[in-house]
Design a protein around this nucleic acid. Structure first.
Lengths: 64, 64
DNA sequence: ACAGAATGTCAAGTATATTTTACAAACTTT
DNA sequence: AAAGTTTGTAAAATATACTTGACATTCTGT
């Protein structure tokens, strides 16, 4: 399922997928795929994304 | 670095690595490696572990 | 001390996360 | 409307998460 929390946290910082990708050291397609929701990133990448966006794991990656 | 929060949360539920592995559907070696800290699990596995141990991502997998 | 369970670790294989290249669609600005 | 940027998506290659099997070590109970 789509990760809209990530998408909106990124928007709140006015970053493009490309810019976030560079900040965390992955490709733009990886960020796109995570937002699109059809995959399963590693915890290290999730942590890097959280730090870049000033959020926690629970805020961006928890789901019931 | 070692994940002692996971190790102690597992101990608190009185589960062996083997039992936790079965609960979340991975091998015992995978749980062992995560606790040992020398690798980088996927977020889906982290979420499954959290649910099995009644913890959140921030509680078990956040690090400064 | 012995037996059984739990843990640590290693090597070789398989599954899948991530990259690279590339192109099309949508949105923004001039 | 044209040009530039952002996003969506796909296929092939590479890196790495995870499995399987096996053995040694430590811990627990009898």
């Amino acid at each position: 399922m789509k990760n809209l929390k990530l998408k909106s946290a990124r928007a709140a910082k006015d970053l493009s997928q490309q810019q976030l990708a560079e900040l965390v050291g992955v490709s733009r397609q990886t960020i796109n795929a995570i937002e699109k929701g059809d995959y399963n990133p590693t915890i290290n990448l999730c942590r890097a994304i959280c730090k870049a966006l000033d959020k926690t794991l629970d805020e961006l990656f928890w789901e019931e």
